[in-house]
């Protein structure tokens, strides 16, 4: 699609590296502490890059510290999504009643209206950040499971698996040592895309006010900005920059995943 395929990839890596640094070493980016108070609603200026918020906290500092929580929820829920997806996808690829059952479960979970289910369930279960991670993972694994199911079904009938079975390797060994490495590429792309959708889902939930207030993510920031009247104060940077960061972060993951799937395509083409 894009003629120069490495440029978007590099851009993604740079963006991701930037966000990761901010997550690990927030002190590098901001001189202020997380709870340092200044005048409320200061305009963006040299000493407060994005101004201050209703309580007088520096918005840029909040943004930098929010990186860790945003990334944490996104990555954790994506890891759980991946695990669930691999297990259920593999089970669904089996023949017989069991496979059919899990197949059906995947199909049902693909359809469920995700956002509303998540909102309702978070009201029932609570909105701590582990609750959020669990809920997002519980309702996000279906696409991964589908991809895994297709690949496993395809792999099971490959000659090398047959050969291994004939040679008497155990099913577990075949699955872990020989099939799993063949799943690596879809797992990688699914993981990256999963982080993407998990971050989007988390920010939407947080924006609606169902986020974890003790670990404010960017979505929570926008929600607070919106509710505390950033519009009327014309603190547009406070409203928009966290959203812009969500976009950049999710774009970073998307660009990296794009590069891997493109590379996969090129390999497939050169093989055929």
């Amino acid at each position: 699609m894009l003629r120069n395929k490495t440029l978007p990839f590099l851009l993604g890596i740079v963006l991701l590296a930037l966000f990761l640094t901010a997550a690990v070493l927030p002190r590098l980016f901001t001189a202020y502490g997380q709870k340092e108070m200044f005048e409320a609603w200061e305009k963006p200026a040299a000493d407060h890059l994005l101004g201050t918020n209703a309580l007088g906290y520096d918005v840029f500092t909040e943004l930098v510290y929010g990186t860790r929580d945003t990334l944490f929820i996104g990555l954790m829920s994506s890891i759980f999504t991946l695990l669930l997806g691999v297990v259920i996808g593999t089970l669904a690829a089996q023949s017989g009643v069991l496979g059919g059952l899990f197949d059906g479960i995947i199909n049902v979970f693909v359809l469920l209206p995700r956002l509303i289910t998540l909102i309702v369930l978070s009201a029932f279960i609570g909105t701590g950040r582990w609750h959020l991670i669990a809920l997002i993972a519980l309702f996000g694994w279906a696409p991964t499971a589908r991809a895994v199911r297709e690949r496993v079904k395809h792999l099971r009938v490959q000659p090398f698996v047959e050969a291994l079975t004939v040679q008497g390797f155990s099913r577990r060994q075949i699955a872990i040592r020989h099939m799993l490495p063949n799943l690596a590429d879809i797992l990688l792309t699914r993981f990256l895309l999963g982080v993407n959708s998990c971050i989007m889902m988390e920010s939407t939930l947080s924006f609606l006010g169902f986020g974890d207030l003790y670990h404010p993510t960017w979505g929570t920031m926008i929600n607070l900005a919106y509710r505390r009247g950033a519009f009327l104060r014309q603190a547009y940077a406070y409203l928009l920059i966290p959203g812009f960061c969500i976009m950049l972060l999710s774009l970073a993951f998307y660009l990296i995943s794009l590069w891997f799937s493109k590379r996969k395509e090129i390999i497939a083409e050169s093989n055929s």
Binding site: N196, M200, S203, T204, F207, G219, I222, Y226, L239, L240, G243, F244, I246, M247, L248, S250, L251, Y254
Partner: peptide, 11 residues
Amino acid sequence: NAVPSFVIALI
């Protein structure tokens, strides 16, 4: 595709 809908609305 990477922009959440509420951010579009805010802009």
